[in-house]
Amino acid sequence: MNKIYGIYKFKRGKDVGEFGMVSLAVDIAGVRLRNPTMLASGILGISGKLLRKVAKAGAGAVVTKSVSLRPKPGYLNPTIIEVDCGFINAMGLPNPGVDYFMKEVVIAKEGNVPVIASVVGERVEEFVEVALKLEAAGVDALELNVSCPHAGAGLIGQNAELTYEVVEAVKQKVKIPVFVKLTPNVTDITEIARAATDAGADAITAINTVKAMCIDIETGRPILSNVFGGLSGPAIKPIAIRCVYEIYRVVDVPIVGVGGICKWQDVVEFLMAGASAVQIGSGVIKGLSIFSEITEGLKCFLEKKGYEDINCIVGLAHRV
């Protein structure tokens, strides 16, 4: 790979002017965000009104729940459990199915930020069919969920050939940008990232949750009804940072970093690792104000460091 690390100039200490006009806008494969924070898939995105509310709370973009061809009720409860350093969930990708969800997309769009639809399928053809319907409904981009650690479709993202096949099939049919969300539950995430970009992925989202489980010691039973779930929250941030850093070295498309973001410092770290934007999931437990708090924090940090543009710090940790 002949990649030049730190493609943006490192402008430490430059005066940004008395009003401190710092630009937080980012462009992910043609999807323009007023700031680099997005709502992660699976969190709240079941209805257009909730997505609109998150947009109005300050998110730069919102990602829907993973949408499948037919409605999915998800697993029985318990579907989420808090552990010392995050949450383990196995919701089972509940969603009302693409035909109904198209109506929710219309409402979500009223939030006036890009709406990215997460797509899931059991087969390649299902990914394509759902993707086409969501494109017709007006979403700004798609995020292929090939990485859910507790659903069958998650196996796709553990196999480079299958990933290539799904991404290529969707890319051949749709015109809007296609992000591919990867799982950390693989030996080498760069291999899957390469397969996705070779197949035409416009951006990589990393990472999905880390496969995990939790047993109640009083009853000796696994707590989640599905037994296995995905770990999110602060526990997985260092894993996500490592994955983004590794992926940045091998792909030329933008990376959307996700995993354990709770504060603006986490976002800076993801950007320095190579992400151009980030997603916030479990962090929403603190309230939707997390989006505006992070945005404010980022502005102050960039001003203090003398950067005019947030894009200046993308991939900074890779500079030679």
Binding site: G42, I43, L44, G45, I46, S47, L50, K65, G74, N77, T79, I80, E82, F87, N89, M91, P94, G281, S282, V284, I285
Partner: peptide
């Protein structure tokens, strides 16, 4: 499902 304001 979650009871804590995450899943929607």
């Amino acid at each position: 499902k979650c009871g804590i304001g995450l899943c929607g």
